[in-house]
């Protein structure tokens, strides 16, 4: 069951992005940053939490989920450690993914070359 909800919710989030992409002259980078900030805001307002509970990976794998994780951790950090936690919380919680992207990105660049499109 959770597979179906993950597929549908994740797919729908992407459809919203696709429609914006097709109907404006925004680039994917604009959409990603906008969705991320929406995730941060929805996370802060407590709206994203139930979506993530319901759809699990369908809500956490798309980029708004990344924003949700950031804001949730910043609030938790602020709760437990005050100002220091507000600063460090978000990055602490998402450090794994960011570090992974850096190291995998670097290693991939070392061992492979870009190919021309055909």
């Amino acid at each position: 069951m959770e597979y179906l909800t993950a597929f549908i919710v994740g797919g729908l989030i992407c459809v919203v992005g696709q429609i914006i992409l097709d109907s404006t002259s925004l680039t994917p980078a604009h959409i990603i940053v906008t969705f991320l900030i929406i995730g941060v805001i929805l996370g802060a307002l407590g709206i994203y939490e139930p979506i993530a509970k319901f759809a699990e990976a369908g809500a956490t794998i798309p980029i708004p989920g990344f924003g949700y994780a950031l804001s949730k951790a910043a609030i938790e950090g602020a709760k437990s450690k005050g100002v220091l936690g507000a600063f460090a919380g978000g990055l602490e919680a998402t450090a794994g993914a960011i570090a992974a992207a850096v190291i995998f990105g670097y290693v991939t660049a070392l061992i492979s070359y870009p190919r021309s499109k055909s």
């Binding site: 919203v16 992005g17 990603i32 992207a101 850096v102």
Partner: peptide, 24 residues
């Protein structure tokens, strides 16, 4: 897939790896 590939976290990885490879 357009946004379907860009919005998931795998797209975030792609956006880091692609320029890293390109500018070797």
């Amino acid at each position: 897939g357009g946004a379907g590939a860009a919005i998931p976290i795998t797209g975030f990885a792609n956006s880091i790896v692609a320029p890293a490879m390109e500018y070797k």
